[in-house]
Amino acid sequence: MTAFVLKRLGFAAITLFAVLTIVFFIVRVLPGDPAMAILGDQASQSALEALRVRLGLDVPLYQQYFVFLGGVVVGDWGVSMVSGRPVIEEILKVLPATIELTVASLILGIVVGVPIGVWSAVRRNKLPDYLARIGSLLGLSFPAFVSAVLLLLFFSIHLRWFPVISSGQGSGLADRLRDLALPAINLGLIMAAYITRVTRSAMLEVLNQDYVRTARAKGLAFAIIVWRHCLRNALIPVVTVVGLYLGILIGNSVLTEIVFNRPGLGKLIVGALNQRDYTMLQGMMVIYTLIVVLVNLITDLTYGLIDPRIKYS
């Protein structure tokens, strides 16, 4: 187990290095001049040149690369070219909000998606199954920003239950839950749609297994067969999807953060892209890579918890 984790961490380090290198060069071949993004279109050529020197963009690319790598190794990710604030500080200030939203959406997706998927499989080709399939299809095909605006119109404008601005209205638990509710529902329902479909599919396969037929023949209660025996065996593909989707969820949080006006990594990366903030983009990529690598590792380790037959070597 320890050897497995160490090996995976070694691969993670290589992945991180590769991503950093690719990101470094990609952001620099993007069209657009950070100096002009910062100084605006009225800046003179001399002012633009002076700023490029201050930002270290006048030295050869390979030198910039080694300075960047050296900084990453010692934990110095530089300062944002736009705001002048340290990159790591900017990221750490909004990272908890993204994690909070992602975890809440994930929990909601699992709590809603797994039971509906099981229910749908058990009632295959009956009304509950049709409803679940149509509902999950809607969830998958509905753009997140449209559902977000609809949620705002109904719950914030019509019913006045939740605020439109989902951030910074207070620091108490009730305030934070109220801020979190609509964004989490918006992302969580999309997650639930995915999980419903995968759970249903996995359960249908398991329900046809011989051991299920045997258990039913022995007179075991159907609920016990479904929830204790079938579900556990159906969970492997569900966990895989949850792991894969978690990375996508963080990416999808961009629009949700913008529409609900929540702080988070999504808003940060959009701003950095618009402003050609190289240092911020690089820092963001480090964080995204770390999250994806970490989630994949946790997913792999979870397989062993669900199915004891899986051994790590």
Binding site: V149, L152, L153, S156, I157, V164, I165, I258, V259, F260, N261, K267, V270
Partner: peptide
């Protein structure tokens, strides 16, 4: 940043 959210707020 969202125009619609600003208007709704």
């Amino acid at each position: 940043p969202s125009d619609s959210s600003r208007d709704l707020a």
